[in-house]
């Protein structure tokens, strides 16, 4: 980077990864513990940028709220709403000649990952964030490597018999239930809860997402109750909250729930019932779903397993 001023152009829409932009602008989609925008700002600031102007046409107010004024990165930052995605060449041409000109960057790739296009496909987006995990762990306060290529954040709790296989990322305040199998190539966002016996591999779980007991996520992106296949691009909404759900709507994060609780608020009973139903279906497919009792019944032995905080 040759100048202290940067103009950063955000992508407006990319058909190949359109589902990533449903709940947020593309650059704010969960990405290796942060967002693409945050990773880019980290790197630009580390490279010496002092003034950054972000040009955004898709939900600039959300980008403004996430970026603030740049204090977090020690830069002076402004977000300018654009009418359509600006053409980088035109923006460069509009720069004054000489030392006052800003460098114009796009967010097709992260500066720290020049070999990884971000928006060509869901799998490319996923591969890029897996590649960034080690660097992201060094950058983020509180992340530590608890096993080879397994990074865990503050206040995360992993059940004693859960199996973790790197590379994987367990964000701050995440809970991993008894007997869960996590990895390889998994990113679990802050405050999420992967319940007992669930298996997650080659997938991203967005922050504040509940992954139900005994479910299986592979080559998927789960964000709240939305489930996206990274391979086919198929997206569906899961209406059964015991399978997949949004913890933010439950009121509290997984880490904030007490030791005997599975998640906050009114969804606890629903989740417990769901766990029993799914456990029966998977263990004994001859049992009808409707036969599962609405209340009572024993907990799985695994739920009594002691969790181990990973940051003590």
């Amino acid at each position: 980077m040759s100048t202290l001023k940067i103009i950063l152009i955000c992508p407006a829409a990319r058909p190949a990864v359109a589902a990533l932009a449903i709940k947020q602008p593309l650059v704010l989609a969960p990405f290796a513990g942060l967002s693409v925008m945050e990773h880019a700002l980290h790197q630009l600031a580390a490279d010496g940028a002092k003034e950054i102007t972000i040009l955004a046409s898709d939900r600039p107010e959300a980008i403004r709220a996430a970026a603030g004024r740049g204090e977090q990165w020690g830069v002076k930052l402004q977000v300018v709403a654009a009418d359509g995605e600006p053409d980088p060449a035109a923006v460069r041409q509009a720069q004054p000649p000489g030392a006052g000109a800003a460098d114009v960057c796009t967010l097709e790739r992260l500066p720290q990952l020049p070999d990884h296009p971000l928006w060509e496909s869901y799998e490319a987006w996923f591969a890029a964030q897996v590649a960034l995990l080690p660097e992201s762990a060094e950058k983020l306060l509180g992340m530590r490597e608890i096993a080879p290529e397994v990074y865990a954040g503050l206040r995360s709790q992993v059940a004693g018999d859960a199996r973790l296989q790197g590379p994987c990322w367990i964000g701050a305040g995440v809970r991993i239930g008894a007997g869960a199998v996590i990895g390889p190539e998994v990113v679990i966002g802050d405050g999420s809860f992967v319940d007992d016996g669930a298996e997650v591999a080659h997938s991203v779980v967005a922050p504040q997402t509940y992954v139900g007991a005994h479910t299986e996520l592979r080559h998927s992106f789960a964000q709240g109750n939305a489930l996206l296949s990274l391979r086919s691009g198929s997206r569906t909404t899961i209406t059964d909250r015991f399978l997949l759900g949004d913890l933010a709507s439950g009121g509290r994060t997984a880490a904030e729930a007490g030791p005997g609780e599975k998640t906050g608020g009114g969804i606890r009973g629903l989740l417990d019932r769901g766990r029993r139903i799914l456990r029966r279906l998977v263990a004994d497919p001859e049992v009808e779903a409707k036969s599962a009792p609405a209340d009572g019944g024993p907990e799985t032995p695994g739920t009594k397993n002691e969790s181990r905080p990973v940051d003590d």
């Binding site: 086919s232 399978l243 799914l278 998977v282």
Partner: peptide, 16 residues
């Protein structure tokens, strides 16, 4: 359909 297959896989019923 792809969405149905996603749900079967999520619940592991694709193995049943």
């Amino acid at each position: 359909t792809p969405t149905v297959l996603q749900i079967l896989e999520l619940t592991r019923l694709h193995r049943v």
